[in-house]
Design a protein around this nucleic acid. Sequence first.
DNA 1: GAATGTGAATTTCTTCACAGCG
DNA 2: CGCTGTGAAGAAATTCACATTC
Lengths: 213, 213
Amino acid sequence: MPTVSSEELAAAAGVNSAKLRKDFSYLGSYGTRGVGYDVEYLVYQISRELGLTQDWPVVIVGIGNLGAALANYGGFASRGFRVAALIDADPAMAGTPVAGMPVQHTDDLEKIISDNGVSIGVISTPAGAAQQVCERLVAAGVTSILNFAPTVLSVPDGVDVRKVDLSIELQILAFHEQRKAGEEASDDGVVPPVAAKQQRKGPDGDVPAVMPA
Amino acid sequence: MPTVSSEELAAAAGVNSAKLRKDFSYLGSYGTRGVGYDVEYLVYQISRELGLTQDWPVVIVGIGNLGAALANYGGFASRGFRVAALIDADPAMAGTPVAGMPVQHTDDLEKIISDNGVSIGVISTPAGAAQQVCERLVAAGVTSILNFAPTVLSVPDGVDVRKVDLSIELQILAFHEQRKAGEEASDDGVVPPVAAKQQRKGPDGDVPAVMPA
DNA sequence: GAATGTGAATTTCTTCACAGCG
DNA sequence: CGCTGTGAAGAAATTCACATTC
C-alpha cells in the first residue's frame, strides 16, 4: 500500500478525518490532493518530528526487577533509544550481565553520563534512593528523567521529569469496572460527564485527574 | 489541617480554582460555603468515586522480570488492589515464591479466576503468549485487562483493555529534549500548537497522538 | 474524479463573576 | 465576611464543507 487517505487513517485510528488532516498540516503539507499521503514519506516525516530518527543514549539506574525488565525491553531500540549503561548501587551486582550488558557501579555514574553524552536517565531504584540519584544525574548533565520510583522528584528549572505510576492504569480499569457493575442498577440523579469507556487518544481514559495519595 | 479551600487545592495542583470547584460539584456538594472542604470527608468521597474503597483481586500472568516487579510493587495494596495469584506457563517456576507468594501454573488459571472472583487481569508475558492468555482470562470471566506485552489484544465487546507501552514515556521525554536542543536555533515558519513542556494533568504531555510503529 | 488543506461554523471546555449560604 | 456552587461569557478544540490541486 504505497499511499493512504486521511479517511482511511482516521477510520483506523477512530478519529475524524478533518482533524487528522489539520493535525498533519501543522507538520507541513505532505499530502497530494486527489491521491492521499505517501505512506513511507509520511512515516519518515512523523518519525523525524517525534525524534525517532535520532539516537538517544539512555542510562538505567537501579537494576532490580523493574530495571532488568526495562533493560530487556525490546521496544526501546526500535524507537531510537540505546541503553548506554546499567547502573546499580549494589557492589555485588557490578559486572553481572543483565540483558547482555555488565551492570556498573553508581560510583562511575558521572563518568558514564559524560562519556556517552547521555541526556536522558531512567530511575528504577527504591523510593528512598531516587532523589539522590536524580540529583547526581542532573549534576552530571542529564536534562530529562523518567521516574519509576514512587516519589515525587524535585529538579531545577529546565529539567523534565515524567513519573510512571504502574498502579494508575489499574486504577482506571477498576474505575470502569465499578461503572460496569453499577450500570444495571442506579440511575439516581446527575451522571457526571465522565465519558468514553474505550481507550482512545490519551492514556488517561477520561478519568478525573485528581485523586488522594 | 481539617479543612481546605478550592483556592489552596487549585494552587497546589496548578489549575484554576473554578474548574476544581466545578469538577468537585459533579461528585456532589461536599463543600461548606465560607469554610471550604473537609479534608477527610473529601478524600473519602473521591476515593469512593474512583473505586479505591473496594477490594479488587487481580492476577498477574507472566512472572518474568516485569511480572515480578509488579508483584513486588507496593503501590497496589494502598489503592485497593490485592494480588490474588501469580501465574506462569513455566512448570519450573511453579511453587517458587515471588513477593512472598507461590507462582502457580497456567493450567489452573480458570480455577484461580473463579475461586477468587477476579475481574481484572494483568498480562506481562512475552508478546507471543499474550493473545492466548487474554482469551483464557476473558473466557474465565475477566472483564478488564492491563496489557504490558507489546501486542495489540483483540477482545470481545464489554471487555476493557489498557495497553502500557514503557517506551512511550521515554518517547515523550525525547520529544521535549529535541525541542530544547532546537530552541536556540530555528524560528523558521509556523510553530505547531504543541504546548506545555511541564507534565501537567494527563500523562500524555501534549504530544501528537499519532505515531508510526 | 478524488482527496487535501483550511476558513467558518459548531461544539466542548475553561474561566469569570456573583448570588447564596454558613 | 469568606468561600462554594453555578449560570453566563469567553476561549479552545473539533467538525463541516468547499475551493483548490493533482
